[in-house]
Design a protein around this nucleic acid. Structure first.
Lengths: 341, 341
DNA sequence: CTGAAAGCGCTAACAA
DNA sequence: TTGTTAGCGCTTTCAG
């Protein structure tokens, strides 16, 4: 037995396919006699009819699918965000394609091309660079999109990010209150908004609190990874720079710091304190449990999804609003007062 | 300017749409004069033509999409598997929809229904229960699927799992060699193949090695979570049961054990050793770093994807083969010789 | 080897 | 309020 089609339902209800279509679609149901509609609905139910979204898409030029563009799903930051996205998009009738760019521009281009060829209705993008020609071009072509986590310059699209500045301020204040005066910032790549925003916020906080404002106390990591975090910290240590605490650009960089501590027999927090950023799952179980700035992962996903839905809904090109989500400092055992020198 | 269609390409190449279609499709290209084909190809390239998979799907009744069914993407076990799946399916021209069931039968049914309505060509399922009426029914309806991680009874579909028995044997032998004789197994739910297989393997290993074979030394967890792992361990401890080591059904259960150790000031590995299962990301950074049975996550995904592709290819209902992937014991600091009593 | 024609399942004018 | 008609973009017989 074949899967029943709209025509089968129509025949069973004794109406034309068009009428059945109208009756089945909540939007257009008002156009149809309610008795007829009921007849169609019950016919559909008894046949076990489910509409074929492919056929609908072909007609309407809307696929009911969304592309989610990530650097790497394997980064524990993203799964909760993806869940958040799905929590909103699923009930709204959309499904997601997830692609990984591995921070590679070419791969990103290919992946997004593939998404577009699948006729996704919109994009939720977590891979933005400050300068991002590809995204700019897509936006100019009218591709609907929302950015999350990172922003892009000169790209007027809705954006959902954690409150980077507030988070860093919390971290620095916490360390200052513990008595630290020389704090190293392991900054993320300056090509990302999160990298620059957090670094800027760090300098601001240091000045506001009257701590040692030494430019050497900002070390830049080439990527948001353990490896590059470790590398930057090693360089700082080797240069003879003195500091008693580290504010890492994110949790992975903080993990890189942990690796260096182990290599060099530095005890944390006794010799050096560390604060992370993001509140990745399971970092409460590390050795030592990581003090970090917790961001609302799921909520970032939900908010981004909601904004995309809005964007898809009204065609009015009203100025995109952007959202800063509140963060909180979660104090654990990786921070303590500095050792009395 | 509109996106170019096949007809545009055909017109530009001075041929009929049908010919263009044949030329563009590698499968049918042989049917067409190679000069003509070249003309079509170059026309396509210069117009920037990309085929519309929706239209193709409508005609061919194949969507080029696959459904991936997980308990919860947020469980760190799954992202690497999903990457593995994608690594194979992407280049083969497929895209994935990922759904989360949250171990809820109703939700699973709804999610799979949604996948089917999107006309997915096949399913890669990581949520199998030993008795799984829904999957059985789908299989009877001819839905193509591959199971991974967990198996289902009386369901003749290809399956990719880690070698549970070998892994548990490695874990038990390791502990035995350290000198442990009374080992507690925190078993996963017996409704899952992994739960029963690992528990059975545990009893076998204990007997083979001549360790204390006390039935009380297998405690069953209600789910594969930290909470239920902790709960089971607390009960065992409260009952006065004596043991010097724990083989956890998986890493999350092992994490639950860690929580109990902290609650009760039990030091690991000095008082109790622990071995996990799965080799989740980041467990090397726990306190203490977890000794665990490492499974080849990405490879599980890749293998499952490959098997699904095979299944989709030949319609011959040849008996499904199943694959056991090799595992390895990764020894870290959560295991040590038992304290001299 | 290529063209003509039909149709996948649905929706959106337009007419009645 | 309902039916008629046409067509989304592609593939696939069937002729030629």
């Amino acid at each position: 037995m074949q899967k029943p089609t709209l025509r089968d339902v129509a025949k069973a209800a004794g109406v034309h396919a068009a009428t059945a279509s109208r009756a089945l679609n909540p939007e257009t149901r008002v156009l149809v006699n309610s008795e007829t509609a009921l007849r169609v609905l019950s016919a559909a139910k008894s046949l076990g009819y489910t509409p074929n979204p492919i056929a609908r898409s072909l007609k309407t030029a809307k696929s009911g699918t969304i592309g989610v563009v990530l650097p790497d799903l394997t980064n524990p930051l993203f799964p909760p965000i993806v869940r958040g996205i799905d929590d909103i998009l699923g009930p709204a009738g959309y499904s997601c394609f997830i692609v990984n760019t591995d921070n590679d521009a070419e791969r990103e281009q290919a992946q997004i091309a593939s998404l577009r060829s699948r006729q996704v209705d919109g994009l939720i993008v977590g891979t933005a660079w400050l300068r991002h020609p590809l995204l700019t071009e897509l936006h100019e072509q009218g591709v609907k999109m929302v950015l999350f986590n990172r922003r892009a310059e000169r790209l007027d699209v809705p954006t959902v990010t954690p409150d980077d500045a507030a988070g860093i301020a919390l971290a620095v204040r916490h360390l200052a209150e513990l008595g630290h005066r020389r704090i190293l910032h392991l900054a993320g790549p300056p090509a990302t908004s999160t990298g620059t925003a957090r670094a800027a916020a760090f300098r601001d906080a240091v000045r506001d609190l009257g701590l040692d404002d030494d430019p050497a106390l900002v070390a830049v990591c080439a990527s948001w990874t353990e490896e590059d975090g470790a590398r930057a910290l090693r360089t700082a240590l080797d240069s003879g720079l003195r500091f008693t605490a580290v504010v890492a650009g994110n949790d992975l960089i903080a993990l890189g710091a942990y690796d260096v501590f182990r290599e060099r027999d530095i005890s944390c927090p006794e010799q050096i304190s560390v604060v992370g950023f993001n509140g990745m799952p399971f970092i409460d179980k590390l050795r030592p449990p990581l003090t970090t700035v917790t961001i609302p992962h799921q909520q970032i996903g939900r908010e981004a999804a909601r904004m995309l839905l809005e964007t898809l809904q009204d065609d009015t090109d009203r100025p995109p609003r952007s959202v800063l989500l509140p963060v909180a400092l979660t104090v654990r055992a990786s921070t303590a007062p500095p050792a009395k020198a």
